[in-house]
Amino acid sequence: MSYNIAVVGFGLTGRLTALELSLKHNVTVYEAGDEQALDSAGRVAAAMLAPLAESVFCEQDLALMGLDSIKRWPRILAQLDEAVFFQQQGTLVVAHQQDKGDLQSFIQRLKPLAEHQGHQLTGLQISELEPELTGRFNQGVYLPCEGQIDNQAFYQASFNTLKQRNVSFKFAQQVDVASLNLQQSFDYIIDCRGLGAKSVACKLRGVRGEVVRLYAPEVDLTRPVRLMHPRYPIYIAPKPNHQYVIGATEIESQDKGAATVRSTLELLSAAYTVHSGFAEARVLNIQTGLRPAFSDNRPQVSQQQNVISINGLYRHGYLLAPSLVADAIARIK
């Protein structure tokens, strides 16, 4: 049976929901911004798929959900009209000498996920995986099941595909889900607003993140490198065309203003200490985003009559969204 369904919010979860539902139903997308959804956290993210590394900080069930999502991504991307970069060649975790203690505790706290686990590496083994890091680190961890996608390409391709499928778009429309429900005859409303859903009843907070995108023709890393850092994990994620995403900071603030010099210095010096080829890289942009999070930093899928909400993905958007969206859609009878 085909329904009239509204998807409110055109960030990462909104796009995934619309892609899935538009195969079978009449979908209308509402978005406060334009088709770029510039305010959405998924636009700014490094788009890492790192269930093992995140298992150090989150509960086992979320890490396992991340593993499930990784399996879903290739099928999601295959239905798009344009190719979107997806990679699953693992992550390399390294630490500078003074952060060795942090690396040790990271290793101790890695939770084995089904048959997946981390492998400790010597300096020689690191240089076999990433020849350009030869001599830089003498200890590291390889997390083979992990991956990443190109989020900018995904945002563009998902929009183009949805346009082809005759999804109707209502941009620049800040809608209130309750009144939308009264005014329009939607069978279901999927609330994917992220921080836009924040209200007295919905206790979300924004967690600020800053991300740098570089063009670095002299750097040839083949997989994401995670660098131990005293305040937040920093990823150096290679995207197509010698672009690298360096991120992200994590600050308990809802300030959406431009990145600070301190954060920029931290991110860029982290990249430079991993590979000196970043010295001559070009800074393409430095973006700021707010991650929507509940107080336990766990995502929620909830339902009130015909309104289904997906929210609170915190720093795990790309890692968890496919599974959460599948969970939400399974509630449509």
Binding site: K203, G206, I251, E252, S253, Q254, D255, S295
Partner: peptide
């Protein structure tokens, strides 16, 4: 407190 957390920006966290 960091500069970016002044006034309203960090309000939710400070409220906790």
């Amino acid at each position: 407190l960091r500069r970016q957390q002044s006034a309203a920006a960090g309000d939710d966290f400070w409220q906790l």
